[in-house]
C-alpha cells in the first residue's frame, strides 16, 4: 500500500478527546479526528480545508505528535511516529516542522529574532547559530533586525520569523496551519509566494491547512476536504475545484465569493441550511446528512467510505459511485 513517493502515510488516525457532557455528568468522546487515512507525497503541497471545528488543525498537530493520537499510525520513513519513544521522536522533529496561524502568539516576546531563529539549531546541535543571518535573508528579513524583539515587527514580518524558525533545522515536511489568515491581503500574497519559492529551493513538502479556499487552490497540488473529523473528498486541486463530487464540497466551493462582479451577478450559490453540527454529538451515518439537499434515508444510517470515484478523485458519499459520479435527482 505504501508506495515510494509517499513521504508520510497516515493510517486510520484517531484523536478522541473526552469531554464532560450530558445532564448527569457522563463522559462523551469528541472525535476530532475520526479514522483518517491519507498519503502525503514527497514534494507536494496537500491542502486541507474545512470549516472551524472540523478537526483540520488537530489532524495537523497529530501528524507531528504535538497532540497525542488515540489510535492509528503515522508512517514517516518506515517508522511509526505515534509509537516512537520521546527521545527518538525528538530527533525526528528536525525533519518535521510547523508554522502557526498566530504570528503574535507563537513567538516568545522576550527573545530577539536571532535567538528565536537560532534556538532550534542549537537544540539540535546543528550550528553555532551563524546561519541565522542567512536564513533571515532567505525569508526576506533584513540582517539588521537580528537583535530586535517580535513586538517591533508587523504581522507579515512575524510570520516570516516563524517560517525562518521552521526552516532553521532544514526540515523535509512542514505543517502550515492557517499561516496567512491573520494577514492583510497584500501581505498574504507575499507569504504565499515565499512559501512557494522555499518549496522549490528546498524540496519541501507542505500540509497547508486553511479555510481560505482561494489560497488553497493557488498553493496546493492536491486538496483534502474535512467535515467533522473525517475526510469527505480528496483529489487534485484542479479537479476538485472544477468538478467537486461530494455535496459538501460543492457547497463549500460555491460559497467562495469570486472577485469579479460580472461572475458574481449571474452566479447561483448553494446556500447550506444551518451550522456545522457539534462534534460532541455528530449526526449518525454521513455527518453531513443534516445539511445535505440530496440526503436520503440511508444517509442517516450508513457511514460512507472514501471511494475512488474517478481516477485520483476520491469522495465519501453513498449517492455517488464510479458508475454514477453525479447524484441523480430523485424525489425524496
Amino acid at each position: 500500500m505504501e508506495s515510494n513517493d509517499n513521504l508520510i502515510s497516515i493510517q486510520d488516525l484517531k484523536v478522541h478527546y473526552r469531554s464532560v457532557g450530558g445532564l448527569f455528568g457522563g463522559f462523551k468522546a469528541v472525535k476530532a479526528v475520526d479514522g483518517i487515512s491519507l498519503d502525503i507525497k514527497k514534494g507536494e503541497t496537500l491542502g486541507l480545508v474545512g470549516e472551524s471545528g472540523c478537526g483540520k488543525s488537530t489532524l495537523g498537530k497529530a501528524i507531528l505528535r504535538l497532540t497525542k493520537p488515540t489510535g492509528g499510525k503515522v508512517i514517516y520513513k518506515g517508522k511509526d511516529l505515534t509509537h516512537l519513544p520521546n527521545s527518538v521522536m525528538r530527533e525526528q522533529r528536525k525533519h518535521l516542522q510547523m508554522i502557526f496561524q498566530d504570528p503574535y502568539g507563537s513567538l516568545n516576546p522576550r527573545m530577539t529574532v536571532g535567538q528565536i531563529i537560532g534556538e532550534p539549531m542549537r537544540t539540535f546541535g546543528l550550528t553555532n547559530g551563524s546561519g541565522v543571518e542567512e536564513l533571515m535573508e532567505t525569508v526576506g528579513l533584513s540582517r539588521r533586525f537580528i537583535k530586535r524583539y517580535p513586538l517591533e515587527f508587523s504581522g507579515g514580518q512575524r510570520q516570516r520569523i516563524g517560517i525562518a524558525r521552521a526552516l532553521a533545522v532544514d526540515p523535509e515536511f512542514i505543517v502550515a496551519d492557517e499561516p496567512i489568515s491573520a494577514l492583510d491581503v497584500s501581505i498574504q500574497a507575499q507569504i504565499m509566494n515565499l512559501m512557494e519559492r522555499l518549496q522549490a529551493e528546498k524540496q519541501l513538502t507542505y500540509l497547508f491547512i486553511s479555510h481560505d479556499l482561494r489560497a488553497v487552490r493557488h498553493l496546493s497540488d492536491r486538496v483534502a476536504v474535512m467535515y467533522l473529523g473525517r475526510i469527505v473528498e480528496l483529489a487534485d486541486a484542479k479537479d476538485i475545484y472544477k468538478v467537486p463530487l461530494m455535496p459538501y464540497t460543492q457547497a463549500l466551493i460555491s460559497a467562495v465569493p469570486v472577485p469579479d462582479p460580472e461572475i458574481e451577478a449571474i452566479r447561483e450559490r448553494i446556500i447550506l441550511k444551518g451550522d456545522v453540527p457539534s462534534p460532541i454529538d455528530p449526526p449518525t451515518g454521513c455527518h453531513f446528512h443534516t445539511r445535505c439537499q440530496y440526503a436520503i434515508q440511508e444517509c442517516k444510517t450508513t457511514t460512507p467510505q472514501l471511494v475512488e470515484i474517478k481516477p485520483r478523485h476520491h469522495a465519501a458519499c453513498i449517492r455517488i459511485s464510479p458508475q454514477q459520479p453525479m447524484i441523480a435527482e430523485t424525489a425524496n
Binding site: Q188, N193, E196, R214, R217, H218, D221
Partner: peptide, 19 residues
C-alpha cells in the same frame, strides 16, 4: 494579488512589495 480560482497552481501570485 487575490488568487484567481480559474488560474492553474504554480503561477506566481502578484505581490505588492513592502509594508
Amino acid at each position: 494579488s487575490v488568487p484567481d480560482p480559474a488560474h492553474e497552481q504554480g503561477t506566481e501570485l502578484y505581490q505588492i512589495p513592502g509594508l
